[in-house]
């Protein structure tokens, strides 16, 4: 959004400079060329920002992307859901949506879980690689802490949230892995992805 505002300001400035430096009879020619060149050069940024601004949430509940922004349809997403009262600062007011370049562009206040989804990825075949890409895109605010066991890798904490330290109803809690809405039968390092996989981490209890 801020990039779009910057581009609009630059566009207005460019228009004023060109309009004031060219004679009347050639003003439309000069302005129109300046506008076309400006739009072509900034087109990629404009379309990305515009798509984020106009994104809607997928409302088909049989879709693995249900509740996610429609601009991620057909792409890979990683979601982190924190129990109420345990979400890290900044992720405690609904579900935040962060694009693969780290831009947070939408928060779903109505979602019944708190946390973040990082999406817009493509080409990842392995769950562990996608998870690391998502953590990096979040600016490490969802940093992982893991332990490697003989049977595989275990996620201890995400964004500093460690289920083993939770109290109350969370006896025997752990980070649980879901793939396309269903509980994953394999660990994250062995998880083979589809082109539009949605990985979800949420805290479950034994």
């Amino acid at each position: 959004m801020s990039e779009l505002i910057g581009l609009v300001a630059l566009f207005v400035l460019l228009t004023m400079i060109v309009a004031n430096s060219v004679q009347d009879e050639n003003r439309l020619k000069a302005l129109s060329v300046a506008w076309v060149v400006f739009l072509v050069l900034s087109f990629s940024t404009i379309t990305t920002e515009w798509a984020r601004m106009t994104a809607e949430l997928v409302d088909e509940d049989d879709d693995s992307h249900y509740g996610l922004p429609d601009i991620w349809e057909g792409e890979q997403v990683v979601c982190f859901h924190f129990p109420e009262g345990y979400a890290p600062t900044g992720f405690d007011d609904g579900r935040h949506h962060i694009d693969n370049d780290g831009t947070e562009f939408m928060t779903d206040d109505d979602w019944n879980e708190t946390g973040a989804c990082v999406g817009g990825f493509s080409g990842y075949n392995n769950g562990w690689n996608l998870l690391n890409a998502a953590v990096n895109a979040s600016g490490n605010s969802l940093e992982l802490n893991t332990t490697v066991f003989s049977f595989g890798l275990m996620v201890n904490s995400i964004g500093g949230v460690d289920p083993s330290l939770m109290t109350g109803d969370f006896g025997g809690a752990y980070w649980s892995l879901y793939h396309n809405g269903g509980l994953s039968m394999v660990g994250i390092t062995d998880l083979e992805l589809d082109s539009d996989s949605v990985i979800t981490w949420r805290v479950d209890t034994w």
């Binding site: 439309l28 020619k29 129109s32 506008w35 076309v36 739009l39």
Partner: peptide, 15 residues
């Protein structure tokens, strides 16, 4: 955004 590019380029073609 695509409509805008079409519109602005039309203005250039007119000019």
């Amino acid at each position: 955004p695509y409509d805008m590019l079409h519109a602005v380029s039309n203005v250039a073609f007119v000019a």
